[in-house]
């Protein structure tokens, strides 16, 4: 007896193979293309941005790069240079590194290794997350009210100085340093900890000899990124108050007393030049200063990214 095959939904033994064959997925391909296209726009923007800046800066870069980097702030666009801005930004970064790194790493160690599960601990955690979301210009208010004008503190910082600016930026990057260090510490396998305790090491000995060395690449990545962030941050420094016109005295690079003196910084010089009516300042000089700043920031960022990728590959392998 023959079995009668009832066609279902137009399928018959003759065409079932045909219908199972994969049809070209036009909608899917289109979707994938749109996603890739959006991503390419972001990358295209980066390329156009770098091209615009370099081509605007070219008259300065090609004719007087040396003078531009070693020159001082001046009212004449053809003679103005950025050495004071570089010096100011250098000191700001050094102060951030001295203040924010030890504080941030110690705080992260406390939160990951010591903190009991209390309300206070979770309050500190939430507080750090919220601090990370505070706009940078609000940190400028902190700098202005406390580090520049604060009672007793202004005598220490010297008012509008690299010290006041550096402390402000240190407060700004502190949450970032804490969070990235916490992540790096969390990634340390707990077997390492247990082995340390097993042979009788104290908590601090385990942290110092095993956890920190293992987490070091991650911590270093976070600190490099936060230095880059501090170097490019302008809004808080506008409130702290930097010089963009003319600085009467110009101490040497390693004269440490200048941390209490008036100062200039790269991002605020760029801001001030970009708002000038004169084209020599607004376009050429501003763009040239941007090239120098961005080169420094991208260098730091790339170092951080390379470092992370290398260690990720090593750990995985």
């Amino acid at each position: 007896m023959a079995i009668a095959i009832k066609p279902v939904g137009g399928l018959t033994p003759a065409n079932i193979g045909e219908s199972l064959r994969r049809k070209p997925d036009l909608k899917g391909a289109l979707f994938q293309f749109v996603m890739l296209f959006s991503l390419s726009i972001s990358i295209g923007v980066l390329v156009v941005l770098l091209y615009t800046v370099v081509s605007d800066a070219w008259p300065v870069l090609s004719t007087r790069l040396g003078d531009f980097v070693t020159g001082t702030l001046a009212p004449d666009a053809g003679r103005a240079g950025i050495s004071q801005g570089l010096k100011g930004t250098f000191y700001l970064c050094v102060i951030v590194a001295i203040v924010a790194f030890p504080l941030g790493i110690a705080a992260a160690i406390y939160l990951e290794e010591y903190a009991p599960r209390t309300r206070l601990s979770s309050f500190i955690e939430v507080n750090i997350r919220n601090l990370a979301g505070v706009p940078s210009v609000v940190y400028g208010i902190l700098g202005l009210a406390i580090f520049v004008n604060g009672w007793g503190i202004s005598a220490l910082t010297g008012g509008r100085s690299p010290l006041a600016g550096g402390l402000t930026l240190a407060a700004l990057v502190l949450p970032v340093v804490i969070i990235t260090t916490q992540e790096a510490i969390r990634a340390v396998p707990s077997a390492l900890r247990e082995a340390g305790f097993g042979v009788g090491a104290t908590k601090w000995e385990v942290i110092k000899d095993h956890i920190l060395p293992y987490a070091a690449p991650g911590i270093l990545t976070g600190t490099l990124l936060s230095i880059a962030r501090a170097a490019g941050e302008a809004a808080p420094l506008l409130l702290v108050g930097t010089i963009t016109g003319f600085i009467s005295n110009s101490p040497g690079w390693f004269d440490v007393r200048q941390v209490q003196d008036k100062f200039a910084a790269m991002p605020t010089i760029i801001t001030s030049w970009a708002k000038q009516p004169e084209e020599g300042f607004r376009v050429e000089n501003a763009a040239a200063a941007i090239v120098v700043l961005v080169a420094f920031v991208i260098l730091l960022n790339s170092a951080a990214i390379l470092l992370r990728n290398r260690f990720e590959a090593k750990r995985a392998g």
Binding site: V48, A234, A274, V294
Partner: peptide, 26 residues
Amino acid sequence: RKILKPILEVLAGIPSVVLGFFALQF
């Protein structure tokens, strides 16, 4: 991904004054 992600991270690291200049000039 290994190529694209660092590019986005570089974009993330560009200081905001630079974007200000770019917005005004381009």
